[in-house]
Design a binder for these strands. Sequence first.
RNA 1: GCGCGGUUAGCUCAGUUGGUAGAGCGCCUCGUUGACGUCGAGGAGGUCGUAGGUUCGAUCCCUACACCGCGCACCA
Length: 731
Amino acid sequence: MPEKFLQPYDPAATESRLYAEWEASGLFNPDECVRQGVTPAEAPTYSVTLPPPNVNGVLHVGHAYEDSLQDAVVRYHRMKGERTVWVPGTDSAAIATQSRVEKNIQKEEGKSRHDLGREELVRRVAAFAKESEGTILAQVRRMGASLDWSRYAYTLDEERVQAVAEAFKRMYDSGLIYRGHRIVNWDPKGQTTISDDEIVYQEEKAVFYYLKYGPFTIGTARPETKFGDKYVVMHPADMRYAEWKDGQTIELEWINGPITATIVKDESIDMEFGTGVMTITPWHSMVDFDIAERHELDKEQIINEYGKLLPIAGEFEGMKITEAREKIVEKLRAKGLVVKEEPYVHNIATAERTGGIIEPQIKLQWFVDVTKPFVIAHSEIPGIESGSSLTLKELMLAAVKHGGVTMPQEGFKKAYFHWIENLRDWCISRQIWFGHRIPVWYKDEEIFIGTEAPTGDGWAQDPDVLDTWFSSALWTFSTLGWPRQTNDLATFHPTSFMSPAYEILNLWVSRMILMSGFHLGQVPFKTVMIHGLVRDKQGRKFSKSLNNGIDPLDMINKYGADALRMGLLVGTAIGNDVSFDESRVKGYKHFANKLWNIARFILENTANTPEINIGRTTSNMTEGDEAILAACDALTKDVTLDMEEFRMYMAAEKIYHYAWHELADKILEESKPILAGTDEIAKQSRASLLLLLLTRTLKLLHPFMPFVTEEIYQSMPTKDANYLMVAKWPV
RNA sequence: GCGCGGUUAGCUCAGUUGGUAGAGCGCCUCGUUGACGUCGAGGAGGUCGUAGGUUCGAUCCCUACACCGCGCACCA
């Protein structure tokens, strides 16, 4: 028995060494597994893409949980003998990273991005991203994640930049990307558009005003936008206003004097709300914009990009809307136009990253059209025929509906469908500087779209960058070399499994399905297992602003990576949130040591076993031994089924229970008299049995606690591979 | 307003086709020159949110309600 077993198990001394060995062995790479003969060349493939962490800080235990889940799945499939690849990567996360660096610069140097200029800011953000990347990759390695580092990708590296430009061009050429004046969510603080999904709603107590608008009374919570309102809208079936006809004009006294207003009848009006009459502000409201489009009405801008009133506001020009509101109401009161005021609670839209209050604006932006039909030349997606015509929306629905992508959790599937059904065109341009620059150049009236800048003078590239999710959406195949027709792409795509948190189901999962469907005619992954969030003790999400993140490295240093992995996995039903509980991690550190001692006992007592004689062919096997073996086989079967059905938390708990309360508590105890006895045949038989049981336990446990199991396995006389990592999963 | 998830031991959470419940940590008692004090043996602690229903039997299935969280919508 090696001397190391005389000491308690020491994760710190073991884990980094083992990870380095694994990495050096090349066995994280399926090609290398084939080359070394541990995986058959014709074995089925299993591929997983790591959801790339954002390079804007450090990982917290939520990431550690995600890594533990995936690594368990990946290690299981690798041991099953499949050509298994887990592709690592990181995400530049355009807006998140830039805004973080901007904040730092503002705080430390008192400078804004405009003080620095585009080039300098991008340089600084990239430097920050690089540093962050180093930290993150070190953290991921310490977790024991068996990622194939030879396939590492970054969303903003050269290959991915090419892929993004190519994707943009192909979609533009198919008419699915267009540029147009549309109403978008404008963040006055961040000075950029953001998508619907980057909005956080906050409840606000406000006042709801009823204002006299000629013969009508209109309701509004935003009097400061009302300057330009010259259309008054009501439902065509509202009998209270039957005397007014669509298109009829009326003269009335308004905030800054007399105006001419036009009656509009539109069915979108809720007769029950307020007075059933409203005026519209198409430039600053999605709903109003839609009404204006339907009736071809004029649209006027009231508020500028900095949240200040424009000249149309007359005496209020240049005021911030928040301070203008009171003054405008005062004036309205003085003119006798305020009929009634009542308290009112509503949600205001704020930008997730900057906290700025969203002001809808009409802007010239780039969009992905989700409702325009296109012909899909080639499709392997169930429910979609090659050569058929469909929209991106239909594609996203069909891929899940017909089982191309399986989403085992019905609840999330429902949420997915609901989101897609309400989907609007995806605004993909962002007025920031860090990220994928839009691959479009302008010269007078000419426009050029390409992966390289056009030749000739006078071309200017679009200043905007793409929404970060545009590049993330290509991730499952851009990491495999697309648009080149690589071996990897042919071998590993569609990928097998993806496990993101539910908060990015819409942001990311749906868009991967969109992009993969359009560009490859494939689904991006066959199974998507949505997991929950790890929260802090108070049940809050980990966030940089709360600074409540827990660094996995602190936990690993204290208890070991195996313990952290078990502490996060066991007792966490997939899809549910959990509060991080350090005491659980502590408990599994004890378990690692328990396992160590089980190994010590068995190795000590089998050291003199002259011939390892394992298996059912042992002719001296007693009934008791048979029962023990049968129980172990039953466990193996059970655990294997759990793994196949992604119940990692169940599998892990079962092996834990078996190792401690069966193997150690019962089998080892009852073995003591046998091993101390004089019946040599019984002794040998028992010794063989114990070695078998320990080997089996190590294998079943390896996907969850890779380090301690590998370390013990290395000392086992029953090794059937150089590394437990590639040893054969028991059947 | 619509939808989704949760409500189980002091705390954090499991509970896979319905047979009155488990893990870790914490607590109590005893023990240990024994593979293991990062331990062992034993124990206390739960009317499984509430009220109905289905069933021989419900933590589990159905209905309603309450509270917590989340998503979507509204936000004139």
